[in-house]
Design a protein around this nucleic acid. Structure first.
Lengths: 338, 338
DNA sequence: GTGAAAGCGCTAACAT
DNA sequence: ATGTTAGCGCTTTCAC
């Protein structure tokens, strides 16, 4: 049976001894440097026999690089971030780098701690997704090591930044409803402490204004990007007899909350009320009715961020292809009934 | 402004020099060992001033421990694993350990590679969730280092194993349908290459048999745990005019696929067909109608696994509290129409 | 209690 | 081309 890894804790010395060469020769063989054919073959054989693998820790120590990339997200288990992480994994795997994921749960202190851990562990690059870290701190980081920012709009940090046009996406979502004849459109936003939530709300406001539609104050609700908040907001709306024919939720999770509230109140989607979400989560195509939404290419964002990090680590400039949000029309929206 | 981490790459020598003491004294202060009060205060001040943090890599090198735990899952971005990961993060954070997550995508070779990476990086413990790694290999690993297994039923490896009674859960799901008067119950299982899928199918079969119900061959479908497969299977069932009044899907994602197919064919849930899922994903409570399902306490599983790993690393035996699956009755099931 | 020195496993000069 | 040696930054004997 082939054993996984070293039998005990073998070192390069053990290999050298067994092969009857010096440790540098073993090191050279391991690293594919020039060695006399005869020795090369012999050492390689011993290497295989002993199932030897060099210690990544020792290599990191001497090389000053660890082949790891710190990735800071709000919540690993949230669908959107999870998708992004998948993209990051895929790219880094190819380049022999290892992502180190940390969740900060929208908590500034946890973010700082995570960064500190990355620094302590001497990661070769850091990817910061969203978050509350100050611009100054990010700039500080960027000056010292490869840093890639995702979803931090409006920061002037000297680091490649990947942003999707949240405002434009929200504008498109709202316009879609308007084009279907809706005039009374509610928007349930995410928490205004988050940039994305604010940008999307702005997009909604812009679209309404551009089409000459007034926004009733009670059409603007604030949720927290989770299902329950939107569920409650929608129940409230109905109980208050607020008039509306469509709801644009700040993300798909909240759109689900909206759906359920409408269902509870005996309103049908899309016959009575049209609903649009944002993100296009994997489940969104399968809920009943399938959700019209704005697709965020989360995996691609992750891939792009990883590519940028790899470039930076190689001392090259990062190439940032523009990524687009796309309206995905499914079955939760229809022309307003006249 | 407080800077994150070291200005350049400060070492313990720089601190020693500035504080006018030896590096051992600095080391002692950092590690909270006995040092003369006067020196202690002085060194600590310099430490703070310089914003010094010891290199985790160097510490790992000399201590032989890295404070990291390798966690191998099939797919980080899958809801169920993501929840578990959250539980693992939460516990390890408290003990100062850092999880290193790897996805293996149901690919044996990727699993082996991930393990190898863990070993190379000298992780202090490994948590293997499900997967295809052979029992022999796991035993090999367990003999050499702290290893915790999750969801590997029937392996006789000398390592703490956390298992939920998948078969029992499926039995309960099926019995729930039977108690509602259903007799014609379809089961769409996950891929039979996965232990969980097989166990759940067995639970279904047991329940049917125990209640004297025959299982038509075409009531047993095999999906792949993803929405689409169940969608297709359900469409097929209806097109073949297979008689059924309820469907037990192997997981919630497939239950969503079932829902959509029923919707497409004009069948109502639960009025025409009852549907039960498995897992209780965060979204399951918010789809319309809210899904009746078997709750797997994914986060708790993660927490338990992390606790076990921590115990093992401390040289203690792991305490494994039993975790239960629970039937969550929501609105996708109702008594069969007579 | 404190400092000098050895050494964790490896790579990269530097000799040979 | 190969071996010898000096560290990488830290912890930990071991003397004092």
């Amino acid at each position: 049976m082939t054993s996984v890894g070293n039998e005990r804790n073998l070192t390069i010395r053990d290999v050298a001894q067994r092969a009857g060469v010096s440790i540098s020769t073993v090191s050279r063989v391991i690293n594919g440097k020039k060695v006399r054919d005869e020795l090369q073959v012999n050492v390689q054989r011993v290497l295989n026999e002993m199932n030897f693998r060099p210690s990544a820790v020792a290599r990191s120590m001497v090389r000053g690089r660890t082949q790891t990339v710190g990735v800071l997200v709000e919540d690993i288990s949230s669908s959107y971030y999870a998708e992004m992480i998948k993209g990051i994994e895929r790219i880094l795997e190819r380049t022999g780098h290892h992502p180190l994921f940390k969740s900060s749960h929208w908590n500034l202190q946890l973010e700082e701690e995570a960064l500190q851990v990355f620094l302590d562990h001497n990661v070769d690059a850091i990817v910061v997704v969203g978050g509350l870290i100050s611009e100054a701190r990010l700039q500080d980081l960027a000056a010292r090591m490869p840093l890639v920012l995702v979803g931090r709009v409006g920061v002037s940090v000297d680091a490649p930044t990947i942003n999707l046009d949240q405002q434009g996406g929200a504008y498109g979502a709202t316009r879609h409803l308007i084009e279907l004849g809706h005039r009374q459109i509610v928007h349930i936003s995410g928490p205004t402490s988050q940039e994305d939530a604010v940008a999307r709300r702005l997009g909604y406001l812009d679209a309404m204004r551009d089409h000459g539609l007034e926004v009733r104050p009670d059409w603007l609700c604030e949720g927290d990007f989770l299902e329950t908040s939107a569920f409650r907001a929608t129940m409230q709306l109905i109980e208050n007899a607020t008039p509306f024919t469509a709801i644009f939720a700040g993300n798909d999770q909240m759109a689900l909350g909206v759906n359920l509230a409408l269902h509870r109140k005996g309103l049908r989607v899309p016959d009575d009320v049209s609903v649009v979400g944002f993100d296009d989560l994997p489940v969104s195509a399968y809920v009943v009715p399938p959700l019209t939404t704005i697709r965020q290419p989360a995996q691609q964002v992750g891939e792009l961020a990883a590519h940028a990090a790899v470039s930076l680590m190689a001392g090259e400039a990062a190439q940032l292809a523009p990524l687009d949000l796309k309206l995905i029309v499914r079955e939760s929206t229809r022309a307003v009934r006249r």
